[in-house]
Design a protein around this nucleic acid. Structure first.
Lengths: 188, 188
DNA sequence: TGATTTCTGGAACGGTAATTCCATATTAAT
DNA sequence: ATTAATATGGAATTACCGTTCCAGAAATCA
């Protein structure tokens, strides 16, 4: 997974994968069929571990807008860490492969859908909690936040610094953080 | 350029380039040195034609916020056209190559910088014209809009539909379109 | 027109890619 | 302990990759 994450699908040779994993060539082919099969497994692993792990924090019961901000701060923190210029394996793979490999494309689109869904739920929770105006188009904003996360990942891949990424996050979150609802009509 | 745009650097073979251009193998090598040289030329061509063309519309003297919106509408319109799933050659190349090819990475980062700059100027014009509050952090928002454009491009590469892309644009532009300045203190 | 440069089609080259195979060693199951 | 299953190192295979080369055709220039 890490090899593919770093260099992409095409630029990673089977020899790279053998060296990186320390696993025998033959065993690799026995288990995953071919390079593409291993790649698919790597992406699946990424989705259900790396990605889902970060998303799970957003599904808690605490303040939803705060959870969304934390998600983005996490993203920025990771992007400028030593694992720099990695970006996101899903984003990278969408760009490299989605248009030419339908099954992998579908898998990646599903993953986007799940991210969007987590955002959507968080936004609904924010509305329920009175943190966010009911006028906000939740579906649209969820899509927007998903796209923004991808934009940040592209910037990360271009080695953007923390300040730049923070600027992006702050501006993006102004879409929801400046949207407290009006006072309730019948305040108790 | 189109071959690289469609399939990326690694997945495009020299044979593909020969077939796509109708130009002889030898002539190609005489002119561009090698595959990488041709790629570099393709990206340069993209930057100074495709990309610059779209950006130029934003540098006019008309209403700046409208120009920004038009830029994004253009993006969406192109992304769902027949040239679908192409995304942006710069975005695609950043993701595929920036971390492993310093010269090309630099070229692509420069291009990002120029986009950011065009946004920045437009935002400043908007402030001058009283379309945009002076409280807005212009640099941050310019970075944000650049990142958003990249996010849209990633979505386009994942074959997102027009509605989805419009949702993203509408939400993103709410960062600036809801920010009219307060009435001037000394209204005439 | 004749000379020079440029382009063409296509063969040829070396290298490395993905994949397969196998005899041997290791591990797990009975 | 014996058998069956799995992993290992590495060679072998096939194919395509990028790149070079060249003899001849076309175009350009004097």
């Amino acid at each position: 997974m890490q090899a593919f994450w770093r260099r992409g699908y095409e630029a990673t040779s089977v020899q790279d994968l053998v060296s990186a994993t320390g696993i025998n060539r033959g065993s690799m082919y026995d288990t995953f069929g071919d390079k593409r099969g291993l790649f698919q497994a790597a992406v699946e692993f990424y989705i259900s571990n790396v990605s889902a792990g970060r998303l799970k924090k957003m599904t808690g019961s605490g303040p939803a807008l705060e959870a969304i901000r934390d998600y983005f701060e996490d993203l920025v923190a990771f992007s400028v860490k030593d694992g720099r210029e990695l970006g996101c394996l899903i984003t990278n793979s969408v760009v490299e492969l989605a248009p030419h490999d339908a099954p992998i494309g579908d898998m990646l689109r599903d993953s986007f859908g799940r991210v969007e869904d987590v955002f959507r739920r968080a936004l609904l929770r924010a509305q329920d909690a009175g943190e966010l105006s009911l006028d906000v188009n939740v579906k649209a904003v969820a899509r927007f936040l998903t796209a923004t996360a991808n934009g940040i990942r592209v910037f990360a891949r271009a080695d953007a610094d923390a300040e730049t990424l923070h600027d992006i996050v702050d501006s993006a979150l102004s879409v929801i953080e400046g949207q407290r609802p009006d006072l309730p009509i019948a305040a108790e």
